[in-house]
Amino acid sequence: MSETLTLVAIGIFQTIAIIAFAPLLMGIMRKVKARTQKRLGASVLQPYYDLLKLLKKDEVVSDQSSWIFRAAPWVMLVATATAALFVPIFLPFSPFGTAGDILVMLGLFGLARFFIMLAGLDVASAFGGLGTSREMMISALVEPALFLTIFVVSLTLGGTNLSSIVAASAGQFVSGVLIVPSMLFALIAFFVVMLAESGRIPFDNPATHLELTMVHEAMVLEYSGKSLAMIQWSQSIKQAILLALFVNLFIPAGMASSIVGIDTAATSVVSFIAKVLLLSMLVAFIETRTAKWRLFRLPDLLAMAIASSMIGVLFFYL
């Protein structure tokens, strides 16, 4: 019984950690991006300052909006935070794994996205509609790419239970398998999907408010104060979850394949942090090197992701 309690405590700790450090990750990425662009950049803690500032500010709500507009940030934050419960982060394990798997996680992301798209429409401005319209297309195409990636991953590692696939990945690594061909293709696809899901370049530019390019920002344009804080925070949580998932699924190096002792646990925590930092730097580099793509070129990119996963499936079967 106490063992179960310990596990639950670890799980909750993991979740709180990722929720708490998500803005930091965002800050680091911004910093890296600024430095690679030869700018000084804001402090890595800047996202926290922003959140605190926004939480204490007054809110302006459009007179056209309905209850959906006000409910959306809450739903978004709750959904993404719940999703964080299922993701193994430092350990190849999440005590809530039997309650929800990777599909539940995606479903919760979908729920958040559903509400934010509605909120975009709710304010009756052309910007919101524009954002929603673009997001509709992107999300419709991301879905198959992501599902197919999961298809490959669950074929290779067995099942859709996040704990078990992460553990399987770690186990494979420990037993000396560096990379499985089908997983390599899944990695490419997942990377593309991750960029799309977390709204990074080339899909979306999180730092722009230009109507030609913005997607996500267009939807949340009317938000301010507390609501905006919640939206930004959940956005960063989502990004952190995806990064963590990527790291744990595809780069299992250093991850303990089971909870044996305090030292292996420490190793895996340290290696996880290192890997996530490296990955976020990579994303930031890519953002510096690439321009945002034209909206109607995005399907090509997603199609490439789908094709890549498909090749992964073929590799698995053949």
Binding site: I68, D122, A124, T132, M136, P144, F147
Partner: peptide
């Protein structure tokens, strides 16, 4: 793939149906 694409577009569709009818 078809199934996942369907699910994705279905979400977009109902964003549209609900959003257009009830919002703004």
């Amino acid at each position: 793939i078809a199934f996942a694409l369907t699910a994705g577009i279905a979400l977009a569709t109902f964003v549209k149906i609900f959003g257009i009818s009830f919002l703004s």
